[in-house]
Design a protein around this nucleic acid. Structure first.
Lengths: 159, 159
DNA sequence: GGGATATAATAAGCTAGCTCATGAATTCCG
DNA sequence: CGGAATTCATGAGCTAGCTTATTATATCCC
């Protein structure tokens, strides 16, 4: 029965998210960075030379939101925008040297935080949890793209 | 191996939370309410006559944060603060009549949202997911209460 | 070439949510 | 009684996110 899940899922997710965010922000603050900025920094590390627009899409956020976060990372000397050689509209994002040691510490912090959060959940379940989160993300993405009222004339769910 | 979970759990949770929040807020906006306010309203429904401080504790948020949300719900005529008879510092929260029909619609919306978000996840897994979220919440609560370095052996804070 | 259109980034201005610091009223308790 | 703690509210300020609009550049296609 879905009843009891129905009862709690949305709000529980909300509470967990708020608690985790506050906690991770507080810990990350030791390194002078917020969690949102950290997420951007980590993405740049794994994909140096990305365009802002690509990164925004990957992170499921609006380009302007990303711009603000990048502004701060640039102010702090952690990354830099470099113009693209063939398309002068484009900025490509690169780490600056100062980011390296910080990223090392942040990796350690991430392990700590994850281990603490997932304590008591065995690795198999943890993997399933992560996969379910991805599923939910996908479901929400779809829902946002074809809003519920609209049947989207391909899959009319009410027979 | 925990490696790949370690790699993604924190940031994936963040992305899911942002997407779900934006989506739920957008849907809830049809009824002139945000998700955060909705959560408060739903709690008041299930626990009429609560004090603000009790509610804040239940919802794992700071009293001041709750005060702001309650301000808006009062402005919109959905709930009201009534003074406690024996302790005049205390406000007790009650639904106003206007809240009833709204709560009915919101219950429907919640079912819809939950069903959409969890599409493709079977009920057993959905229950496990919810239980894991509760576990994480508990873990984070503990972590925040005794910050990481401190072993906090049995709370001998005095003496 | 040149107009229409698309894309990249940004600007301006707003909101929600959260916090800290402060203060006021009240109650508790030694 | 009188100091300490509790309960709530206010004000100021922050991050992060959104919408709408603007600027600059590229591309498409006649």
């Amino acid at each position: 029965m879905r009843g009891s899940v129905d009862m709690n899922f949305l709000f529980t997710l909300g509470e967990v998210q708020r608690m985790v965010r506050a906690w991770a922000d507080k810990e990350a603050a030791r390194y002078g960075i917020t969690r949102a900025q950290w997420a951007v920094l980590a993405k740049v590390e794994r994909n140096e030379g990305m365009k802002q627009s690509e990164l925004a899409e990957q992170m499921e956020m609006q380009p302007i939101t990303l711009t603000r976060l990048i502004d701060k990372l640039c102010d702090n000397g952690l990354i830099e925008r470099r113009g693209d050689e063939t398309d002068r509209r484009v900025n490509r994002l690169h780490l600056k040297k100062a980011a390296r040691p910080l990223l090392g510490k942040l990796a350690g912090l991430r392990s700590e935080l994850t281990a603490t959060a997932l304590e008591g959940i065995n690795p198999t379940d943890a993997h399933r949890l992560l996969a379910q989160l991805e599923t939910i993300k996908e479901n929400v993405r779809n829902a946002v793209q074809n809003p519920s009222g609209e049947p989207s004339r391909k899959e009319q769910r009410y027979g």
